[in-house]
Design a binder for these strands. Structure first.
Lengths: 143, 143
DNA sequence: CCCAACCAGTTGCAATATGCAATCGGTTCC
DNA sequence: GGAACCGATTGCATATTGCAACTGGTTGGG
């Protein structure tokens, strides 16, 4: 799946990276669900991702610059996954995915609440969220 | 793949419908590439979709209300595929997919040109495009 | 010190999906 | 009447997914 390069269309290239059932779910959980470790992603997964698939997706997302991985200083075995600038810039895309899902799928109103707030908050709110994510995943600019 | 219902999250439900390598490519080609027939989608496909996969995706997209299918009055064998209101409302989502791809993938500048224009045109331009698509795919409101 | 719980994955296997090329029965054009 | 065109379908090799069990190592409490 690596260097396929079906075409240079930006939509196609994005789908080659993220067009599967799980990649955006993993990013959603890290972005909105505050998960940072493998175990958290597995055990708190609403959709029940399999551990081998999660391992594969995390590896590929890191490989493609959508996540970064580092050791947890407090625990030799724990790995901390963080969003990168590239994945933080998926916020507007995810907002539109949520907005469409809210209107055209039988989405649970409770789960759709955050999607609705982000959608109605507009670009201003998205940018605030993105700034917040940068602070907690990438750290201050001079760090 | 039918009634999986992994969760009621709007992002998840959207990915269950459209989260694969080809569905959004097919919609992109119908939406921006003015393809309306099976043959057009196959022979003019930049990415080279296989005919069995295209047949499957068209069937599923029709089944899920993202496309409609009708007979071509001018040719007994031809089927005309049209966008529906649901897929026309994917415009903002596709704009964001294109916008992200333009920034974060090695997209061809020529192919990225329309993505750039739509992105920079803002919601006003998207709505104009959506109105145009409604006119040519769904027909006038009182028809 | 010891053991249970926890850590990030890996392995094996069956089921499913994809990619590819050839082909089908029917239609239309010349 | 024959070639080109129509929307698919078929058969087959390969790749991906889902599931459950398991691995080697770490940590914290008693």
């Amino acid at each position: 799946m690596g260097t396929s390069q079906r075409s240079g269309c930006p939509i196609n290239l994005t789908l080659e990276l993220l067009g599967d059932q799980w990649s955006l779910i993993v990013i959603r959980d890290i972005m909105f669900g505050r998960r940072r470790h493998f175990r958290e992603l597995i055990t708190k997964s609403e959709e029940g991702i399999a551990s081998n698939v999660l391992a594969d997706r995390l590896r590929r997302l890191v490989e493609n610059g959508l996540l970064s991985k580092r050791d947890d200083p407090a625990h030799k075995q724990k790995a901390i996954y963080s969003l990168t600038e590239a994945s933080i810039e998926l916020v507007p895309l995810l907002v539109q995915v949520g907005a469409w899902g809210r209107r055209h799928t039988p989405a649970d109103p409770v789960l759709a609440k955050r999607a609705k707030q982000l959608e109605e908050g507009g670009p201003k709110k998205w940018k605030a969220l993105m700034a917040h994510l940068r602070a907690s995943h990438i750290g201050p600019p001079s760090a």
